[in-house]
Amino acid sequence: MGNKIEISGLEVHYGGKPALNRVSFDVHENEILGIIGPAQSGKTTLLKVINRTLEFVPEATLNGTVKLDGVDISTVSDVYGLRRRIGMVLPLPVGLPLSIYDNVAFAPRAAGIRSKSQLDELVERCLQQAALWDEVEDRLDTLGTKLSGGQQQRLTIARALSHEPEVLCLDEFSIAIDPVTTMRIEEVLKTLRKEMTILLVTNLVQQAKRLATRTAFFLNGDLIEIDSTDVIFSDTPTQQATYDYVNGTFG
């Protein structure tokens, strides 16, 4: 398997306060990489670096390189195109104050797709993939913000899929939704893995265990350990801290 993302010597500071300390690792193509670790460990920052939305944080400074398909992302001039190669699902569902249809069609339209039939097809496919189509197909023109929390989160997943990303980043996607919906989305992720690389930031270590092919453990901005999920969740990971964290005896 080739490397989809190569991160080397990545350092991020927020106004002098370190958020990531010289982190280096690779993300393989078509894997689900689970990223676990307590709060303040730099997981969300990592995702922001990858889709270059860290640039909106005025006090953030960045060193090191992140390569997507071998190309340093900081040299990409079409940053909007770059962001569309990466799907992003944030912790709290954000239905944009637009209709369900317009939510999903947002990114394709921003990318310049105008054809109605093309958009119709795309919206239906993404909502199907996110396991939401059956619940909303007869009310696509109602506001996305009117949906329930779990539905909104599936809407954001459909939206993240709408620009056919190569990498899908999920930042604690299940924080605001019920276990049944979580399970449905987890099934969706297993299928999506065939088409894209998935970065799964999660506070539920069991979720990483269920889904991830490999798992990375972050602590206070350091990458403590990255290995296949079996090893991380075995009785003998390399680092004691990893063992303590996944077994809930941390701190």
Binding site: L82, L92, L96, P97, F106, A107, A110, A111, R159, S162
Partner: peptide
């Protein structure tokens, strides 16, 4: 701000964020 972040993550330019998301909101 979550609206802005969500729209930016979808590859919207700043002006697209303004007229597609902020003005309706």
């Amino acid at each position: 701000d979550s609206y802005r972040e969500a729209a930016e993550a979808l590859g919207a330019t700043r002006w697209q964020v303004v007229y597609r998301v902020l003005l309706p909101a």
